[in-house]
Simulated scan of single mutants.
Amino acid sequence: MKQREERCEVELPVRGSVSVWDTDPLTYGRYLRDLRCARCGAVEDLVLRTRDTWGLLICPQGHAWRDPAAKAFGIRLLYARVRKIGQPGPHHDELRGLDRDAGASPSWVVPLLSEPRDAVAPDDDASISAARLQWTIDGALGEPDQPPLTQAMYWARALLTWAFPRDPVTWAMVKREQLALDAHMVMVVLGLALYEYGYAASTADLQTLPLTAPLEMLEDTEQRNLLRRVRPSGLQRVGGTLRVTDRDRLANCSPAQWAYWCDVAASVLSASLQDARIDAAAEHGGRVELPDAGTRLSRRRDKADIAPEDWYTWYTVPVE
């Protein structure tokens, strides 16, 4: 556990004070308050730090304390925002989200890879079976009116943007020096796992899938190797195939790179599955044997933070 905590630690010095939302216990009214050291009263120049799933505050005098509003999730979001737009100013409008606990995380937490989004032409792979092609057509014509891989890549992005700031293990595993590339390839692995399990389950509507099966696939070495060779089928002017760049990366990456992307993807699914089971237990009276529906992808939609117009278009530009 000690090694895990050290790897997951984030430390962020903040100029000025930090304001968080709180609720009056009598009136239930919402108000802003400054995070304040209980020993010396300091409110400025604090250091925000994460350890595993909780947050820690340190004042200039070295006093450390915890505050219910300073959760690890919020500190990691702030850390990601600072890396993107710079240190917040003295009024700290950017720090008012520090006490966020539920719902989705901003999509900018996982930056999109800047590269051409051209898709592989659907007729470039003559090895696609008739059964797989029909499954692709069923997905494009049915609910949600998108080919399976397009659905899978939506869910891959939703799962990663949720897990990255919340799960300390996933946060520690993603390399900051090439965040956009590694995060992108983790989403590709997640998308391929969801896609392939959807086909195995003969389900064109991927949101009905449980999180358990793709996780089992990514935890098995033999299935991982098979997954790397999957080339999804698509349709002309509709999409549903890999990016050209991703096809090439999958063909040329080293075994160590592939294993790393699969490990992170498995961590994302594991964190999401744990959260889904906690939610399901709360809804079903804490039963140990939870209904399978509680772990389905559709139950994660309220925790996805992708703009509706970007749900199914972020990954590729279909071939005309």
Rank of each mutant, 00 (worst) to 15 (best):
D101G: 14
D101M: 15
A102W: 14
A102C: 13
G103Q: 09
G103M: 11
G103L: 11
A104F: 15
A104D: 15
S105F: 03
S105D: 13
P106T: 10
P106A: 04
S107D: 14
S107Q: 14
W108K: 14
W108G: 13
L112I: 01
L112R: 15
L112N: 14
L113R: 11
S114V: 14
S114T: 13
E115Q: 12
E115R: 11
E115I: 06
E115T: 05
E115W: 06
P116W: 02
R117C: 07
R117N: 08
R117W: 07
D118S: 13
A119L: 08
A119Q: 02
V120C: 09
V120R: 05
V120I: 09
A121Q: 03
P122C: 07
D123W: 10
D125M: 08
A126Q: 14
S127Q: 10
I128S: 10
I128K: 02
I128P: 05
I128R: 09
S129L: 12
S129W: 09
S129I: 11
A130N: 14
A130C: 15
A131L: 12
A131Y: 04
R132P: 06
R132M: 03
L133K: 15
L133Q: 15
L133A: 15
Q134R: 13
Q134V: 00
Q134H: 12
Q134A: 15
W135A: 12
W135G: 11
W135F: 10
W135M: 11
I137P: 07
I137Y: 02
I137K: 00
D138K: 10
D138R: 12
D138M: 07
G139H: 01
G139K: 07
G139Q: 05
A140K: 06
G142F: 05
G142C: 03
E143C: 13
P144A: 11
Q146S: 03
Q146W: 01
Q146N: 04
P147H: 09
P147G: 10
P147L: 02
P147F: 07
P148I: 02
P148A: 15
L149K: 00
T150I: 11
T150Y: 07
Q151D: 05
Q151W: 04
A152T: 02
M153Q: 15
M153R: 15
M153Y: 06
Y154G: 09
W155R: 09
A156P: 09
A156F: 02
R157T: 11
R157W: 00
A158R: 08
A158K: 05
L159W: 01
L160F: 05
L160S: 08
T161Y: 08
T161P: 06
T161Q: 01
T161I: 10
T161F: 01
W162S: 01
W162E: 03
W162Y: 10
W162M: 04
W162K: 07
W162V: 08
W162R: 02
A163E: 02
F164K: 05
P165D: 06
P165T: 07
P165F: 01
R166Q: 03
R166T: 00
R166D: 01
R166P: 06
D167L: 10
P168G: 12
P168N: 12
P168V: 09
P168E: 12
P168F: 13
V169C: 00
T170F: 03
A172R: 00
A172C: 13
A172G: 14
M173A: 03
